[in-house]
Structure formats: C-alpha cells, structure tokens
C-alpha cells in the first residue's frame, strides 16, 4: 500500500478503509502541518487546520483533478486556504516583523537539504532571495500570509499604491524565473 500512487490512494481514501487512511495521512502530514504552522505560527491551530485539510480531501476527493497539479499541491492549497481563513478570523495585529523575517529566511535558504528539490523550486528560492527586501516582504505577506495590499500598506507604513507595486514587481520577477525554467534556460 505504501507504493500506491498518490492519486490511487486519494481515490481509495473515500472507501473508508483505515489502512488507506493511515497511509494517506502518513504520506502527507508533514507537508500539511508545515504549511499550517508557517501561516498560523500556532501549533494548536495548525493541528486543527491540518485535520480539517485531511477531512476536506477525504470529503472532496472526487473533484481532485491531476491535470491541475499533484495531490501534494492540492493538499497544500487546501491547508493554505484554511490557514489564511483561520488567521483572518483571528488576527488583529499585523504579522510580527520577526516572524516575517524568519519565514523569509526559510523560503529563501538554499542549504544542502534542498539539493534534491526540483529545479523550479530551487530557482524560485534563489530568485526570491535576490528580490529587494521590501518586495520580498510584500510578496510573502500577500502570498503566504494572505494579506491584502491595504493590510501590507498599513503594516509597512507605505501608500497603498506602493504596496501594490511591490507585489506586482516581485511577482513579475518570479514569473520570469519560472518561465526560464520551463524554457530550459540556465541563466536568467
């Protein structure tokens, strides 16, 4: 059962078989919990979100479409959306500067443990690390913490237009990086 492809495991999950459920959860729990923790920073809330993520996947397994991405990506997206919803419901203060800096450090680091990551991810990390700090912060606030441009403007003490420009500029650079990976370019 450990060798079952992710897609088959997901289909089988709907049968209610506990062995399949264990295999499925074991395979993806670190990914799902990691995303929930990164967004919420709260282990208890992250656990709730991770549990909900698996329940959503179980309940909606029939609409998973492998043409849109892998099972891991699907679960990651579910966990991220649930985490942002939870944080939006709770957060009264903008994300703490030290949390943001720590997360930026994590998503831009390129240590040996990422050596086996796919090329697109490695190049994306490197491109993120090369962004001007203020653009990288805006991108992480929007893309990971789910903050609107207005919230970013308030948190950074900048005009709304500047926040929008930073997000747009950062996205354009990362888009270019991914496009170059697709084309097989080795230099950017």
């Amino acid at each position: 059962m450990d060798r079952l492809p992710d897609e088959a495991l997901l289909s089988g999950l709907a049968t209610g078989d506990p062995d399949l459920a264990v295999t499925f959860v074991r395979r993806f729990q670190h990914r799902v919990f990691g995303v929930a923790m990164a967004v919420t920073g709260d282990p208890q809330l992250a656990e709730d979100i991770a549990q909900q993520t698996f329940e959503r996947a179980w309940r909606h397994a029939q609409i998973y479409d492998s043409r849109r991405g892998s099972v891991a990506t699907w679960l990651t997206t579910i966990a991220h959306n649930l985490a942002i919803d939870a944080v939006r419901a709770r957060r009264t203060e903008p994300v703490a500067p030290e949390d943001l800096d720590a997360l930026l450090g994590v998503v831009t680091e390129t240590p040996e443990r990422w050596a086996l990551a796919d090329e697109a991810s490695s190049r994306l990390r490197a491109a993120l690390a090369r962004l001007p700090r203020e653009q990288a912060r805006a991108l992480v606030m929007a893309g990971i913490y789910g903050m609107t441009a207005q919230q970013i403007a308030d948190a950074e003490g900048i005009p709304l237009g500047t926040a929008k420009t930073r997000i747009r500029a950062a996205m354009a650079k990362l888009r270019k990086t991914l496009a170059s990976v697709r084309r097989g370019d080795h230099a950017e």
Binding site: H30, F33, L124, G143, L174
Partner: peptide, 16 residues
Amino acid sequence: RVGERLIGLLPDQEPP
C-alpha cells in the same frame, strides 16, 4: 503557478 510554487517552498514540519 508562481503563487502555487511559493506556498510549496514552505518547509515540512513534524506534527504533534
């Protein structure tokens, strides 16, 4: 795709 990839950079963590 960039947005999707960005979330994919988040690190795995050991659940409780």
